[in-house]
Design a protein around this nucleic acid. Structure first.
Lengths: 227, 227
DNA sequence: TGTACATCAGTGAACGCGCGTTCACTGATGTAC
DNA sequence: TGTACATCAGTGAACGCGCGTTCACTGATGTAC
């Protein structure tokens, strides 16, 4: 009732396992653990990722790892969260951009490039996110959804806008479905880029093919002839 | 040199760990282990899939598991091989089918349905194949490639054929790139079908959107209006 | 149709390492006065 | 500017379970004669 004054009871802030509130130093260690997790994900398999290896690789001890994460999965989850924040910016390549004619085609290609680059940089984390999502882990699914959702919404808005500006084609497919398919295509091709190279398909051609599909699907027009 | 006659030295046939050649009974046990592996992959996470659990789940002992597989990965690999054999048949939905006009659009939809159905049935194994492939495991990559390759080649042949029949559009994108992108789209959307539902996108719309993209990309024509 | 022998098949039980996990303790950093 | 105390931070070392892995043995199946 009365003032239990001097006991701070903020409960929403980050806590270590034993209840301490991490300061500068602690957060830095936590980050080193995350970085090391990302690194090992890049070079090794998820199935073989162990707490001890992460801790030792980060130049610290297993006990320290448990200060910040309950298990390996939790560390990967935190890593994925970091990434999804950055990924939401992809929609910047869609909103307030020209989508008509030659400039529109350029926008399509820029979007394709941005997605390709983002996937390349986060390849290792993304594949685990994909796996966990499909295994039914809702926490990972949420992250994945948040990551792609903005982009999908942005694209669907463009579809609506384009349709409203010319009342020609009788295409009434759900704009979100159209956008979703496009985003899926981008995500999948980005994820399997090296698979393509493996078949002898040059990245440049993949990029062009996707740029054309994006442009055509959104605008309903043929892409301007390459020069 | 001369006849070491009666010692059979066939070396390419299936062998158990200790060198025995499995008969009826042994093969049946092996298959039960595979089935159980598939089952556990469906309901649990790959990371938590253990030899002991598979063996006990299949009503046998760990020691028996090692008769047939050196480790969990090997069992999953065998499972993937089974699947890829069946998957090669997807190209049947492309070759010797009509690709013009209304019938062509129907072909597109049938292809989409077939891919969706196949992915659904093999969802659990496929996600592990995808993961392992991206982690750089060449054995899994090979299986994945074999699985999708026939379909890709078949589609690219259609692209070539369609282009040769009408000399209108100046589209000289590598047909394999075009086909590869389409297959990727199909594979990715199939894999993330439930993600779509999650966004409130109905499967029917997804199917239509893909059918349209396939048709348009291959034929260069607008799909016939839905009726 | 029966007996003997070879090989296939399966597993209980044990071994032991790897790894997750924790505790009690030492050291570092911050801040109140 | 210094001392004391609180809290943050880190970890060595140990514990013990889980699990991979193997071996020696029993039982099942097949086939030669």
């Amino acid at each position: 009732m009365s003032s239990s004054a001097d006991t701070t009871t903020d409960d929403d802030e980050l806590r270590a396992a034993d209840g301490r509130v991490p300061g500068r130093r602690g957060l830095a260690t936590r980050q080193r653990l995350l970085d090391q997790t990302a690194e090992m994900l890049r070079s090794g398999s998820y199935r073989d990722l162990k707490v001890v290896d992460i801790a030792r690789g980060a130049g610290t001890s297993p006990a320290t790892f448990y200060q910040y994460f309950p298990d390996v999965e939790a560390a990967v989850l935190a890593l994925a969260q970091e990434m999804s924040l950055e990924g939401a910016e992809l929609s910047g390549h869609v909103r307030d951009r020209p989508w008509k004619g030659r400039a529109g085609y350029a926008t399509s290609l820029e979007l394709v490039d941005a997605v390709l680059e983002f996937w390349e940089r986060n390849r290792a984390v993304l594949r685990v996110v994909d796996l966990a999502t499909e295994e039914g882990d809702m926490r990972f699914r949420q992250i994945r959804t948040r990551l792609l959702n903005e982009l999908t919404v942005a694209l669907s808005e463009v579809v609506v806008k384009v349709r409203s500006e010319k009342r020609s084609v009788a295409d009434d497919t759900d704009p979100m479905a159209v956008a979703g398919v496009l985003v899926s295509m981008l995500a999948h091709v980005a994820a399997h880029r090296w698979g393509f190279e493996f078949w002898g398909i040059r990245t440049g051609d993949t990029r062009t093919a996707m740029g054309r599909i994006v442009f055509t699907t959104i605008t309903g027009q043929k892409p301007p002839v390459e020069r």
